[in-house]
């Protein structure tokens, strides 16, 4: 009897040590997205939020580098968060919203339409970048199932070791530093700041479209997104953020405009600089693909005015909880701006 107990105890101990070690190793080899590919850190940062949001942005790099929630609050008192990610596809955005709805219901959801050009999962790397940080729940499961490319398996999302075990010989100081700690956020309520200036010089020469219509699958997801918003009494706003690349075809624009019209939604194409004030000869850090902080702030100011006037969002300034939250964020925001622009010289 005693011997049997000892055996059972020994086996249990072995298993505890084994699973403990696997957990530690799994954390070690998983990418940290702290210093390289920081976009991968965006998804998780939403869960650290202590205040709620009237506006949620969902979409790809044309939201998380083009709008600044700090400016939106400081100038209009609008509370917001950007649930965006690198090449975040439309179903990613749908599930990001579904996930957010677990804890809050925003008044307005802003969706950037560029991602609609992709009707199928594009790359495993971007899937992992956007989905690994999501909290477990129906939304994450749905997002994974909608996103997997050939050769991916669901289990590797549950146990990241199965995916990242090949990184054991590619570990960097970052991996050891953030093994068990997550550190400061990399974004400002989902906004990633860039301060460089690299003007757009070339005029894009897009190839002719073989099919003028956006993929049916992505439009179906847009339908689902609209239905989800409607169901929760959320106003869905469609936007096309300014950039010269990837090229946004007039045919697509017309399709979105007619979709918006048929659903009674607002669609803002922000490509025209004379309206928004964004000037791609100074306001971009990569030749017109993404905006730098100057451009993002200009665009946010312009769009904030619209949000305030057209959608009657409340000015939260003066409410203690928000003031404290955004004041602290503003300090970090300005410091980052300073740090980055000093780094430039």
């Amino acid at each position: 009897m005693r011997k049997k107990l000892l055996t059972i105890g020994g086996v249990l101990l072995c298993c505890i040590v084994f699973f403990g070690a696997l957990y530690a190793l799994s954390r070690l080899v998983a990418p940290k997205y702290r210093e390289a590919l920081i976009e991968g850190h965006l998804t998780g940062e939403y869960y650290d939020e202590e205040t709620d949001h009237d506006v949620l942005f969902v979409g790809d790099c044309e939201v998380f580098e083009h709008f600044s929630p700090v400016v939106l609050y400081n100038e209009y008192g609008i509370t917001s968060f950007i649930r965006g990610g690198a090449q975040q596809l439309v179903w990613h955005s749908y599930y990001m919203l579904l996930d957010a709805l677990e804890t809050e219901t925003p008044k307005v959801v802003v969706f950037n339409v560029l991602a609609l050009k992709y009707g199928a999962p594009q790359s495993e790397a971007y899937n992992r970048l956007n989905l690994d940080g999501m909290r477990w729940g129906g939304a994450k499961i749905g997002a994974i199932r909608a996103s997997m490319t050939d050769g991916e398996d669901f289990l590797s999302y549950v146990f990241p070791l199965l995916r990242y075990h090949d990184r054991f010989d590619k570990l960097t100081a970052e991996d050891w530093r953030y093994w068990f700690s997550d550190g400061e956020p990399v974004s400002f309520k989902g906004y990633i700041m860039h301060t460089g200036v690299k003007p757009a010089t070339k005029t894009p020469t897009p190839p002719a479209l073989s099919d003028p219509r956006l993929p049916e699958t992505s439009m179906a997801w847009l339908e689902k997104l609209a239905a989800l918003c409607e169901e929760h009494g959320i106003t869905l706003v469609l936007i096309k953020s300014p950039s010269i690349e990837p090229y946004w075809y007039p045919e697509w624009d017309a399709e979105i405009a007619s979709f918006a019209k048929s659903r009674g939604l607002r669609y803002y194409n922000m490509m025209d600089g004379s309206e928004t004030g964004v000037d791609l000869s100074t306001d971009t850090y990569d030749q017109g693909q993404h905006l730098n902080v100057i451009g993002a702030e200009k665009l946010t100011r312009w769009f904030g005015g619209i949000l305030k006037e057209e959608f009657g969002l409340r000015d939260h300034r003066g409410e203690a909880a928000y003031d404290a939250d955004y004041a602290a964020l503003s300090v970090r925001y300005e410091a980052e701006k300073q740090r980055l622009s000093e780094g430039m010289e």
Partner: peptide, 10 residues
């Protein structure tokens, strides 16, 4: 699990 060649990486 750690050193095997399996999964998406391979």
């Amino acid at each position: 699990l750690l050193f095997g060649r399996y999964g998406f990486g391979f």
